[in-house]
Amino acid sequence: MKAVVHADHQGFGGLSYREIEELPPKEGEVRIKLKTVGLNHRDFFVLDRHKPTDPPLIIGSDGAGIIDAVGEGVLNFQVGDEVIINPALGWNENSDAPPKGFEVLGHPFHGTFAEKVVIPACNVASKPAYLTWEEAGVLSLAALTAYRVLFTRGRIHKDMKVLIPGIGSGVATFLLQFAKAVGASVYVTSRSKDKCEKAIKLGADKAIDSNGDWEQALGGEKMDLVIECVGAATFNKSLDQLRPGGTIVTFGASAGDDIEINIRKFFYGQFNLLGSTLGSAEEYNEMLEFIQVHQIKPVLDQMYSLCEFGKAFDRLERAAQLGKIGLYI
């Protein structure tokens, strides 16, 4: 089968679109003939984590398609079922942190950037009927991350004021839609005027320039909850916007992970700092129910053919996107 494979060289230079062996499902597994897959920042990080001395690896965490083979012992799915993939492997029940053995599809195990993928049946869910294949294929990793960040860690409710710095990413656009669905007031930042305007159309109460004076742009309003995924470039500006006793939840560091904070200011402010990453199968099922109740869809930026993976990576690296970038198989 055709796939995007990382081998022999570290970084982007190790990627190629080529033939690789198609595998049958083992006991408890299903094989999915993929229709669409989604690109994530994680796919960039994998290119450095996967070493030239490691066996060739199919990258990719997100995808949707049709089951074409079922392993022994699988009773809840059959050939022909339309499904989406939960990329969180080995994390079944909600817990304070992922259990030992937790991994994400696409490293160290083969991922979704291929014509077919074999995964545990417990990591498969029925495709929500209202989603297109394009929407279903880019959904899972970003939506699950956003759900745990807001509901499990941030404990969001309708009376909250929420700040989301850097509105361009797929997770950020889900954060905006989820927070608005529960009735919260949502404020976002971006260096792009176009992204700010699009965020307002998605429901943001205010969108401000990331490079400007946040305190002034927000009229002195303080936030109950800030969701940080940018990192060093915005973290202290985010902290300055918290009300006393407010909470920052962080799940990424795309702009650097070395941060200095004023610890005295932090403890006098009675602030809460929480980390988060992806989520459990329990949260994944809750997220699917939530998006169907509220008819929430991924914000689709652009779709490419799988063989055009280089163009997709380039767009993500330039931060040109608003929402999710996907690929047709």
Rank of each mutant, 00 (worst) to 15 (best):
M1L: 08
K2N: 14
V5R: 03
D8E: 14
D8C: 04
D8N: 12
Q10E: 13
L15P: 06
Y17E: 03
G28E: 09
R31A: 12
K35S: 13
V37D: 03
N40T: 11
D43M: 02
F45E: 10
L47M: 14
P52R: 03
D54A: 04
P55C: 00
I58T: 12
I59H: 02
G60S: 04
S61T: 05
D62P: 04
D62M: 03
I67Q: 05
I67K: 05
D68F: 11
V74W: 09
L75Y: 08
N76V: 00
F77Y: 15
V79Q: 10
G80R: 06
E82D: 12
N86Q: 12
S95Y: 11
E103L: 15
V104S: 07
G106A: 01
V118G: 11
A121R: 08
C122D: 13
V124D: 10
P128G: 04
L131T: 00
W133V: 01
A136C: 10
V138M: 08
L141Y: 13
A146E: 10
Y147M: 05
L150F: 07
R153N: 09
V162A: 07
L163W: 06
P165R: 01
S169P: 13
V171F: 05
T173K: 05
F174T: 12
L175W: 13
L175S: 05
K180G: 12
A181C: 11
A181S: 15
V182L: 14
A184M: 07
Y187W: 13
T189G: 09
E197R: 14
E197N: 15
I200H: 04
L202Q: 13
G203D: 10
A204S: 12
D209N: 15
D209A: 00
S210D: 02
G212I: 02
E215G: 09
G219H: 06
M223S: 12
D224Y: 08
C229E: 14
G231L: 07
G231W: 03
A232T: 14
N236F: 01
R243V: 06
T247M: 09
A253D: 05
A255K: 12
D258M: 09
D258R: 12
I259W: 05
I261K: 11
F271K: 13
N272L: 03
L274S: 07
G275S: 08
L278G: 01
S280V: 01
E283V: 02
E283F: 04
Y284L: 05
Q292I: 00
Q292H: 11
H294V: 01
H294Y: 14
H294N: 15
K297V: 02
V299P: 06
L300G: 08
L306Q: 02
C307P: 04
F309D: 04
F309R: 01
A312S: 14
D314F: 14
R315E: 09
R315W: 00
L316Y: 07
A320I: 00
A320L: 14
Q321N: 15
K324E: 09
G326V: 00
